[in-house]
């Protein structure tokens, strides 16, 4: 019984905290709060639309769409709750699955800013990752029939895994066979092709030729925190 009371009071405290936070946000930035509401309704519209008309696309409920979200193709798409779709350089979020076997999993509270995802085989974007206006594509080409000469190179659709809490920078390309570790950062304009990046590293270059441990980097810069 005391545990139950404690749990209920905990829930109330949490609700009060959330409510206060929401109220503070509303008072500080009423226009932003309005835009958030509009985004929520727009996202709900997308959720309903895809739930009614597309069997393969599942979007979990709180979905905030500040921009247009296009999902095409025959494959499976799963998007977790609390995802945000932002516009970035006039580009909306474009998700294309190119084969019926394609599986795209996007975790909870991922922020998708103008990202273009083209999926042949399997792409995993785990929780709390951030993507700017970048291209995530497994496979070199998206055109369906390639010539016999190219099969070895261009039909190797290896899986892409982007682990939790990563940040993929603007205008970068994440290509096939990439595994990005937890908390790591891909720099702007980097191209990642069949690479494994260790957790909490910063990766630079087109194609990526260097990755620096961020702890090391901060030490080098003389940050104390």
């Amino acid at each position: 019984m005391p545990t139950l009371i404690a749990r209920i009071s905990g829930v109330f405290a949490e609700a009060e905290r959330l409510f206060r936070r929401a109220w503070r946000t509303l008072v500080a930035d009423p226009r932003g709060a309005l835009r958030l509401c509009v985004a929520f309704f727009r996202g709900t519209r997308y959720v309903l639309q895809y739930r009614l008309f597309r069997k393969d696309v599942r979007i979990q409920m709180p979905f905030f769409a500040f921009t247009r979200v296009r999902i095409h193709g025959p494959g499976k798409v799963r998007i977790g709750g609390y995802c945000f779709a932002y516009p970035n350089v006039f580009e909306g979020v474009t998700i294309t699955t190119l084969s019926p076997m394609a599986q795209l999993h996007i975790g909870r509270s991922v922020s998708l800013g103008g990202v273009t995802i083209r999926c042949w085989n399997k792409i995993d974007l785990k929780d709390r990752s951030m993507t700017a206006n970048c291209l995530i594509q497994d496979g070199i080409f998206v055109y369906p029939d390639c010539f016999p000469l190219w099969t070895q190179q261009s039909k190797r659709h290896e899986q892409i895994v982007i682990e939790e809490n990563t940040w993929v920078g603007f205008s970068s390309c994440i290509l096939e066979g990439t595994h990005i570790g937890r908390d790591s950062v891909i720099a702007e304009g980097a191209v990642c092709f069949r690479k494994t990046i260790a957790p909490y590293h910063l990766a630079i270059g087109n194609p990526i030729n260097r990755s620096i441990a961020i702890d090391h980097f901060r030490k080098f810069r003389g940050d104390t925190c």
Partner: peptide, 25 residues
């Protein structure tokens, strides 16, 4: 084959059976 988001600059000769990966200049 020239893949997405790549750029071919001036004065370039590309031979036969070449694949250019995405995002390359």
């Amino acid at each position: 084959g020239i893949a997405a988001r790549s750029i071919v600059a001036k004065g370039v000769k590309i031979g036969n059976d070449v694949i250019i990966g995405p995002g390359s200049i």
